[in-house]
Write a protein that binds this DNA or RNA. Structure first.
Length: 500
RNA sequence: GCUCCGGUAGUGUAGUCCGGCCAAUCAUGUCGGCCUUUCGAGCCGAUGACUCGGGUUCGAAUCCCGGCCGGAGCACCA
């Protein structure tokens, strides 16, 4: 019996269909679980370098949720490991966030709060939920793997407090403060994790005021609680950490925030972590953090990718826990949609070959005007002086041997042993099935350099009106592709190529 | 190895919680055609996916079991 037939039969019997309402599906981002009024979210990077595309996901999503529910976003710089701090990152992170158009209402740096973590550590000892452990790491691990307590675990809070006070005088590795969890927890990683440890290394930002530093799991949980964070968006690599942190919340009788874990974001052709990128920069393989081959926000920005494209992409990817691989084609597609309407057009010829058109009627020489944007005449025109001597792309010449070629908005030429004037009108060009190509006047042009995504450089010439392009603008070099003006030096413009 | 988690078109994503309206959404890509003084855009069309095998059920992308594949964690990093 089909569903319809069943319904008919049921209604004959007088049975009403019970309506189970399904959640109405909104477009866009999935709802956050258990939202009660406004939300407090945080973006909490480690200052080990500039932000990369993976950070952009967390930042954009946090931003979007705050916008959607109301509330605030906290920027929290997590620099509790002096060895993993790049001092420049303190500037680079806010810069990158601004480029991403992410706003935060509060900003804290964890190295300003070491004393707070010490206070809570002490309190936890007082509660009997943490103990000073002086076991060598490997011995503790052996015991832990067997679900056995180490001798230190039975110390009284007083004994622990005494050791805690001495901790600043101890050497690195001699002692740690452990949080009591469950020694029988099936994941050994969760068992009695480290809350505080000794680091004998000057902190790049706060110097050597402290030797006892919190572990990320401790400072994060304390801060999330103190700052009233309601929802924690983090990568699934933090799954075990979320569980570790839950013990701390329970020990302090704090309300546990909602943890949401998203999957790994890979980027096509870019498998570079911050540390690998750093090494490449130090070794001179990459020119810097904004080398076009890197997956950093600044590299992507430099390539002419718009913030909106990244934003759209991140919203689309959302928070699901399955991993995803971002393809450049997807980014290019989104970006092209944004750029198409607002990018002015210019002629740039790569691999230029100088061509003198023989037999060009004098009357056809003069200034040629062409719309800056074919769809928007109000955007104005650029002028190209045309005197019969032009630069053409070597490839266009080679591909059109013994054929008619039309120079856009100018004349039709024939590519024989010499290049000769053929005709003037577009109709003639159509009749001859001529390819229509861009060109650069030989009498007036600038040098141009185009840096490709793989960092290779193409050289050529660009039309004179290009002087009006501002650094940072993205334009379309006709028949070449979209490119962002990166710098102007003397008479040379350097563009970074985005995509077709 | 141990613990946990995933697998929808080339890529991303909706649908999975609560089985039927899903011969499965949208985006991007790709391929045709039209159009266009750009190889860009636009218009029209096409393409293409529920990891596999069992089970439950009238009915499974959706629930259960197993396989396969993939990922994360197993730090005195974050």
């Amino acid at each position: 019996m089909s569903l319809e037939e069943q319904k008919v039969e049921l209604s004959k019997l007088g049975v009403q269909e019970s309506k189970k309402e399904k959640k109405t599906q909104k477009k866009g981002l999935a709802d956050l679980p258990r939202v009660d009024g406004e939300v407090v979210l945080r973006f909490a990077p480690n200052p080990s370098g500039p932000l990369h595309i993976g950070h952009a996901r967390a930042a954009c999503l946090n931003q979007e949720y705050v916008k959607h529910y109301g509330g605030k976003l906290i920027l929290r710089v997590e620099d509790t490991d002096p060895r993993r701090v790049d001092p420049e990152a303190y500037q680079m992170i806010p810069e990158d966030l601004k480029w991403l158009k992410v706003d935060w209402q509060e900003e804290v740096i964890q190295s300003d709060r070491i004393k707070i973590y010490h206070q809570y550590a002490e309190e936890l000892i007082g509660l009997g939920q943490a103990y000073m452990c002086t076991c060598p790491g490997d011995e503790f691990k052996t015991l832990k793997d067997r679900c056995q307590a180490c001798p230190c675990r039975d110390q009284s809070p007083e004994e622990n407090l005494e050791l805690w006070k001495k901790m600043p005088e101890m050497r690195e590795g001699e002692a740690v403060l452990r949080v009591k969890t469950d020694l029988n927890h099936k994941n050994p990683a969760i068992r009695d994790w480290v809350a505080m440890r000794i680091v004998e290394k000057e902190h790049p930002r706060i110097g050597d005021d402290f030797k006892v530093y919190p572990m990320m799991n401790f400072s994060v949980a304390v801060d999330d609680h103190l700052m009233g964070v309601t929802h924690v968006l983090r990568g699934k690599d933090h799954l075990a950490n979320s569980e570790k942190q839950k013990y701390l919340y329970q020990h302090f009788s704090w309300k546990i925030p909602e943890f949401i874990h998203y999957g790994r974001l890979k980027m096509e052709d870019i498998a570079l972590s911050t540390s690998q990128a750093r090494k490449g920069i130090e070794d001179g393989v990459y020119q810097g953090w904004d080398d076009p081959r890197l997956g950093t926000i600044r590299a992507i920005a430099r390539r002419g990718i718009m913030q909106e494209a990244i934003q759209e992409l991140m919203l689309e990817i959302g928070v699901k826990i399955a991993d995803s691989t971002v393809s450049w084609k997807k980014i290019y597609g989104l970006n092209r949609n944004l750029l198409e309407d607002k990018s002015n057009r210019y002629f740039a010829v790569l691999n230029p070959v100088k061509v003198e058109i023989q037999g060009l009627p004098e009357s056809l020489k003069g200034n040629i005007e062409r719309l800056k944007h074919p769809d928007y005449p109000d955007g104005g025109v650029r002028e190209l002086p045309f005197d019969g001597v032009v630069y053409l792309d070597q490839e266009d010449l080679e591909n059109n041997r013994s054929k008619v070629l039309r120079l856009m908005d100018a004349v039709n030429i024939f590519i024989g042993d010499e290049v000769t004037y053929h005709s003037a009108s577009l109709e003639e060009a159509r009749k001859s099935d001529a390819r229509i190509v861009h060109w650069v006047p030989s009498s007036s042009n600038y040098q141009v350099e185009l840096v490709m995504p793989d960092a290779r450089i193409s050289n050529g010439l660009i039309e004179p009106a290009s002087h009006e392009i501002k650094v940072g603008d993205v334009v379309q070099l006709e028949r070449v592709g979209f490119a962002r003006l990166d710098s102007i030096k003397d008479d040379k413009l350097t563009f970074y190529y985005a995509h077709k």
